[in-house]
Amino acid sequence: MHKVARKLHRWSMLLLGLQFIIWSVTGAYMVLVDINYIHGNSLVNNQHKPIIAKDISYSIAQLQQDFPYASDISMANLLNQPVYRFTHQDTSMMISAINGKVLSPLSKQDALELAQQQYTGDGSVLNALWITENPPFELSPRHLPVWRVNFDDFAAPALYISATSGLVVTKRHDFWRIFDWMFRFHIMDYSSGEDIDNQLLFWVALFSLLSVSSGGILIYYSVIKPYTKKRQRIINKARAV
């Protein structure tokens, strides 16, 4: 039993050992860095100014006449003016609640101003990129179109401002990007991403269970058994006396 377990453990770990190192390194990174930080919550101040009611001169009734299929209508303050956000025939839109002027898609200048307003770091803006298709891996395609505002700061932060709502829809820095890679390596998804039910992981994990269990048997022989034997010897000695 002892010898079989040792051989099994030694041979299986020759094949699986690298993945165990990957699991422990990636796992340690993921638990060590606070998930709220990873999500980039500290990159934005989430400050919103109250809506000034007296500024509103374009009514919701008027909006409905101009956009008869408008649904999911909301209102907020954006760059010191009240705005309506809504969906019209599957298109997200934003218009001024002062005069009904269409504000979407957002201009580069407005996107920059919004990003700077929300950003908590000291770094200055590096550039702003207009993205309508093929988003980078760190951005979900459902947020398109967006302005990606890059900051010249620690860990290369980027704020993604929706061109249709003016809201910060995604915030990223290098610690998130590393986390994403770590997670892929952790779930052995070496192809697409976010695919935890892959065959490779199944076979490696199943084989690993055998390997770790054989290690468990070795603990019994090298730690638990010697301890109980020693204990028994002491008890026997005491009895003999």
Binding site: H48, K49, P50, I51, A53, K54, I56, S59, I60, A61, L63, Q64, D72, I73, S74, M75, A76, N77
Partner: peptide, 23 residues
């Protein structure tokens, strides 16, 4: 149909601290 409903403006006059109004 918003034609006969109370306008957001009127509601917001009563609640001055609102940062977002959602239908």
């Amino acid at each position: 149909n918003y034609q006969n409903l109370i306008e957001p403006k009127q509601i917001l006059h009563q609640y001055p601290d609102v940062v977002e109004l959602t239908t």
